[in-house]
Write a protein that binds this DNA or RNA. Structure first.
Lengths: 329, 329
DNA sequence: CTGAAAGCGCTTACAG
DNA sequence: CTGAAAGCGCTTACAG
């Protein structure tokens, strides 16, 4: 039975009309005594209004979130953080998974718009012209997460700063050529910005030659790139665009009888839980994913209220030092 | 503009009424020529009907999923799998995260019921009396995931079988006392069933003494339990209820100058990605999470159509052999 | 403070 | 094959 009760049922039982019950929920004026009567009935039946039937309401109190995948520790952190913040603020979170498909990203965005949610947190692998046009024309506020978006509001990781920090870190303590295992440039944040940071950081601190490789985000891709780089001769250091790629590098080093932190320095980005489990533990830069989610949600809510928000916000990172970098003597 | 268009707008542009457009979407009879006209307009405006405005429809075509947390590789796999299946079948997936809170689990369940989704996939840490009563009285079909639920329909991992397999595996190749690092018994599936399997398997194949420890699911808990066990004397093997706990055990072994696979056997359950990265790689049992999600979704859809479904379905597991078990000579 | 009525975007018998 | 009308569960001016 529970759940098939409507606002009208509650109203009847409380001896009022649904208008009054609606006001009860939406902060309209209701006499203290009726308020109590309504409350009793509600508690007895465990009633909650159907959030999606508020077709005529100004706001739906639901925020949509679209993520490129759910199969990622990072995304999990971001979404968990968003959910916590929104819940505290009395909002529903509607999560849509694009499962690595650009087509689905577009569809999900479109769908959230027609669902008339109050706002959208949008995270995509890369933002195409179509994404842009959809976001631009959206009657609903959209905040873009983890990708730069000059046409609108975004909250991003400090990819350039992180890259640069890592570049300087390695540049100042490594000798010999440096290999960089990156990802395709279609991913702005990681493929372009992070890489540029690394290159600039290295250049500032060392004259070492840099050899570039590029692939996708998979473990296998890491293995392939590491082989490709090492086949070209000995390396002083390998900088990997993500920890997962570094896992692949570890595997290849082992195959070749080399040891990270002794024969060659290896570093990554991400600060995955498993990186501390490696032997030796990986030195890596961790981004503040919880901060990203929190800030994104907060910013979006401000937007929906028409409050001013920064066009772009950058969240911090910090280094987790493992033992994978050759010690200076 | 995109998104503010309603079915009525489309209808007007196509020179028909919204009744006809509605029929177009729901498979009613529409003349070929009008069908084409409607289709054109829809494509031009990228229109999609608002799924949540189907207040009067028999079905909403949305399935709710409640998960205990999003911060888990296992859950991610399950949810991704559910999403894929449902999408193929033309359903929306609405994900609700309980964030480790029993109270939220109840709330999420309640909310999905009042949202009048077509069905609910429910996964909870443990199922209390309150959960039971809510599910029992739900006017909407519910399929319980990953926990036994004799009062209704469930899809579960083979916790007993997996435990038993692992128990026999270790029992037949280990000498000396066996330590078991488990979790609290409030978690039926892992805390009780899996443990019982392990104990039965061990008993069948060995007369070795078994020392039990229990804690929560965290890495720190694994560290604590491993210390506790090893403090009581040397062990031939440590069986960990999850891989994460095994990570803690590895850490303690290292502290004490012991090596997994040489001085003591260590095994886990879960088949986490990172387990193969350990040194030595962990021998572990992996459950078929994708299968669980897929089967759960399929079963739920059958239920919504009134088709008969098994009361309980058990998904498979398989062993991933690492190098963490002492070789027999 | 409260109710009657119109409306949100859609669906569904019922006529024609 | 198509439209007019009633209705889904809720909200919102508008009277009183």
């Amino acid at each position: 039975m529970a759940g098939k009760i409507t606002m009208d049922d509650i109203a009847r039982m409380a001896g009022v009309t649904k208008s009054t019950v609606s006001r009860y929920f939406n902060g309209g004026s209701v006499k203290e005594s009726t308020r109590e009567r309504i409350q009793e009935i509600i508690e007895e039946y465990n009633y909650e209004p159907n959030a999606f039937a508020r077709l005529k309401a100004r706001e739906s109190n639901v925020i949509g979130v679209v993520v490129p995948t759910l199969n990622s520790k990072i995304t999990s952190r971001v979404v968990t953080s968003i959910g916590r913040y929104l819940r505290d603020q009395g909002y529903e979170t509607l999560i849509k998974d694009s499962d690595h498909s650009t087509e689905l990203e577009l569809k999900n965005l479109q769908r959230l718009i027609t669902l008339n949610v109050d706002g959208i947190l949008f995270s995509a692998i890369n933002i195409t012209e179509e994404h842009r046009s959809l976001i631009q024309n959206s009657p609903i506020p959209v905040v873009v997460l983890a990708q730069d978006y000059p046409q609108g509001i975004c909250v991003v990781y400090d990819d350039y700063g992180a890259g640069r920090t890592m570049g300087e870190y390695i540049g100042s303590r490594s000798r010999g050529p440096v290999g960089y295992m990156g990802v395709e440039e279609s991913d702005e944040a990681v493929g372009v910005t992070r890489k540029q940071g690394v290159l600039d950081g290295l250049k500032k601190c060392s004259a070492a030659e840099v050899i570039l490789a590029a692939g996708d985000y998979s473990y296998e891709s890491g293995v392939r790139m590491a082989r490709e780089l090492l086949d070209q001769g000995p390396l002083g250091a390998i900088i990997c665009a993500t920890d997962r790629l570094a896992f692949g590098a570890y595997r290849v080093l082992e195959e070749r009888g080399l040891q990270a932190g002794k024969d060659v320095s290896v570093v990554g980005f991400g600060g995955y839980d498993e990186s501390t489990l490696l032997k030796p533990p990986l030195t890596t830069l961790q981004f503040d994913s919880y901060g990203l989610g929190y800030l994104g949600a907060e910013t979006l809510l401000k937007r929906t209220r028409g409050e001013p928000v920064p066009k772009k916000q950058i969240v911090d990172f910090h280094m987790i030092e493992g033992n994978s970098v050759i010690k200076e003597k």
